[in-house]
Amino acid sequence: MSIPSILLNFLFPPPSSLFVTMMSIVGLASLMNAGYMELKGKHMQYSKFLNVGLAKKKDDMKLSSRNGMLLVYTPAFLVGLGSLLVFPDQYLRFVLVASALTTHFFKRVLEVLFLHKYSGYMPLESAILIPMSYTFSTTTMIYAQYLSRDIPEPSVDLKYVGIGLFVVGIIGNFYHHYILANLRKEGDKEYKIPRGGLFDLVICPHYMFEIIEYLGISCISQTLYAFVFTLGTALYLTGRSYATRKWYISKFGHMFPKDVKAIIPYVF
């Protein structure tokens, strides 16, 4: 049995859509490149990496970090919500995928508004490029699911496994965001080494659980695009986790525990 025929047991056949095909290629390539750039030390200009290499762009227009992050997540949330309102009578997988994506970004919006603490700024360039990426990928994932509505289901049904992974991922991601948000008191701008939860094993458990979230969405979807996007996201977040660990080591030196890995406990 060939590899393509085996994969068709787990995936819907790719739709004959040039848009979805191009977004699969461009999305994977751009996320892989972003992960590689993180490894090379050329970071997305937000979060703790905002001031890394920012001197050369000091005249760039900037938004407050809070407003910038709202701009990052809100359009994708609206796309997910809009898809549920515009297409109310879709089949179960479509509803589950659109609901999971909407929940993912709605949670992010709520975290920006009520959980995270911000003290810096986000360059306008990042505040435009990042939400474009999230919005286009969310739109494409939902559209690929819409195109699969009349195609026979894969013989191996992963949607309930996906629901379980998504729930574990979103809870784990929120829990570790909560720990990060409570590291610093109001007005405190000093960074600290995170403790508690899986922070004792990896420096970016929130990224690990975000990958689990998207893996769950991919299993619910069972479209090729969803898995391609999840692979790209995993590669990017792995690169960013490596850069984050390197940043903590440079900032705290011997105080940073050497056995704390980047994103995979005991491994990497």
Rank of each mutant, 00 (worst) to 15 (best):
I142M: 08
L50H: 10
I220P: 00
K57V: 10
T233D: 06
L71A: 14
G232S: 08
H176Y: 07
D157W: 05
K117W: 11
H254R: 15
S24Q: 10
L54S: 15
V161W: 05
Y207E: 03
Y175W: 12
G197C: 04
K42D: 12
K159V: 06
Y207L: 07
D200V: 03
I163Q: 05
T139V: 09
L180N: 03
L7G: 11
N67C: 04
Q222E: 09
A76T: 01
L39W: 05
Y236V: 01
I170S: 02
M208Q: 03
V86T: 10
F199C: 08
S126Q: 09
P257G: 07
D259V: 04
R93C: 02
S24C: 14
S137W: 10
E125W: 13
G197A: 05
E125L: 12
S17Y: 04
L158M: 14
N173H: 03
I212S: 05
E38C: 15
N51V: 06
R184S: 03
S83E: 07
G41V: 07
S137K: 06
M32F: 15
D59W: 09
Y242T: 13
A226L: 03
L92T: 12
E186W: 03
G253M: 08
F227L: 09
N182I: 09
A127N: 07
G164R: 04
G27K: 09
L198K: 02
Y134V: 05
V112K: 01
S133V: 11
S250W: 09
L215N: 02
F94Y: 14
L81M: 14
Q45F: 02
G216R: 01
K107W: 00
F12E: 01
D188S: 10
A181I: 08
V267H: 09
G253E: 10
E111S: 00
G232Y: 02
I151V: 15
N182A: 02
Y160H: 13
I142F: 03
V167W: 00
D150M: 11
L110K: 00
D259H: 14
G82R: 05
A144S: 15
K192Q: 13
G35A: 10
M122T: 13
D259K: 12
G232L: 02
S83D: 02
L18M: 12
G197S: 08
S5M: 11
P4E: 06
S148A: 15
L8A: 15
L147V: 04
S47L: 05
V86L: 15
Y191H: 14
V267Y: 11
F105G: 00
V267P: 06
F105Y: 15
V112I: 12
L237I: 05
K42I: 12
G187E: 06
T135E: 11
G80F: 00
M255H: 14
F256C: 06
K48M: 15
V228N: 05
K57E: 14
F252L: 08
K42R: 14
G35I: 07
P88E: 10
R184G: 00
K192W: 08
